[in-house]
Design a protein around this nucleic acid. Structure first.
Lengths: 198, 198
DNA sequence: AATTAATGTGAAATTAAATTCACAACGATG
DNA sequence: CATCGTTGTGAATTTAATTTCACATTAATT
């Protein structure tokens, strides 16, 4: 068998992406090293050249997820002006992100994260709360500028914002992609908008 | 070792509950038969007197979850009058249910459900959509009676309602019970209320 | 072109479960 | 109180995955 050799940096990236893809191709169970290796075109033992073990791989996947989530925050900050419009953009981006990589919720909720290592759980907790804090910041900016009402705590609003996508993602996930996330988000946004302005 | 013998009906119940408890005692990983057996005071092989295998056990746990969820629907229908008050009750009950048995989200999102059997996933899907349909019904009743505004689709409102608890549950879950779900729900309810009434 | 370090391979060892099975204890029933 | 079906036990067995290891191949450097 001839497999091209690539630098470990590229491989690490590939492998972490492969985890999301494999979990996304919603056919099978908890990912296993063999599947991942197959996806990248390697043999299982080769993964150990790049990651100490399954645990380290998991860590890399979390980092990948983190970067994807925060990438959206960056994007709306750069491409959109005004808190309200940023929120709308972020909402749709978030929906798309979850649908396109539904390995993400699989990882976030995976049994793996909840067992053993408390650190693991805490890391995910920090990722999610960090993301919520970013949303909160955007909301607060809107409140300062007067485009978002001030009599609701930004923190609560941020959680509710997050709660628009979450159930939709769950349903989409369970329905094998049948449930219409974009439709839900499209319908829910104006309601949320009305709630936070006015 | 002397262990009391009990009828298989009682045992099945005990064992399914044990799964939720074990997963709830958020210490360790995906549940294993040994842990479950231990929790009930049995030896692993004894479980096979009551369930064909892990799969059948899983099925029983799903049924248990379903009954707990729909139990709340029943309860608010009987104990509370008026759509709006019913929704409020249901919201708090739901929050408590998830916090007290956080084995529930663990199961709902467990890797096990997503692998192999499509039936499994579909069963969970039906449980969740059924629950949402019940919420939708309550909302629609409110719309008919005029206590809830008619210009928002009941379906969308139901999903948003569901979305109040979900992020809170996630955070609570990940924070090892530190995150204040009741606080969030308490803060979010009046906002939601304002949204759905006038 | 030879050396070396990095990456890839295939087979084997390890690990951790679920599961099976032969047997024991119990409880109901005649 | 003897029997029979049910429930429980402990020791194997099976299964399925991760991981290790000795060896092969490649890329880079000289």
């Amino acid at each position: 068998m001839t497999t091209e050799k690539l630098s470990t940096e590229i491989r690490k990236e590939q492998i972490a992406e492969a985890v999301l893809q494999v979990l996304g191709d919603n056919n099978i169970k908890r990912f296993n090293m063999a599947d991942i290796a197959g996806q990248v075109g390697l043999v299982p033992s080769a993964l150990y050249r790049h990651f100490k073990g399954r645990d380290a791989l998991m860590s890399a996947v979390l980092e990948l997820i983190r970067s994807k989530l925060y990438g959206n925050i960056e994007a709306v900050r750069q491409q959109t002006d005004g808190a309200v419009d940023r929120l709308r953009d972020l909402l749709f981006r978030h929906g798309q992100l979850i649908c396109q990589n539904h390995g993400i919720p699989r990882i976030i909720f995976s049994d793996e994260l909840w067992g053993q290592k408390r650190e693991r759980r805490q890391r995910v907790y920090r990722i999610v709360t960090g993301y919520l804090a970013e949303i909160e910041d955007i909301i607060r900016e809107g409140q300062d500028q007067g485009s978002i009402r001030r009599d609701i705590q930004a923190r609560v609003m941020a959680a509710m914002f997050f709660g628009i996508v979450q159930p939709a993602a769950l349903l989409w996930h369970m329905s094998d992609g049948v449930y219409d996330v974009e439709g839900h988000v499209t319908a829910a946004w104006p309601i949320f908008l009305e709630t936070i302005t006015r």
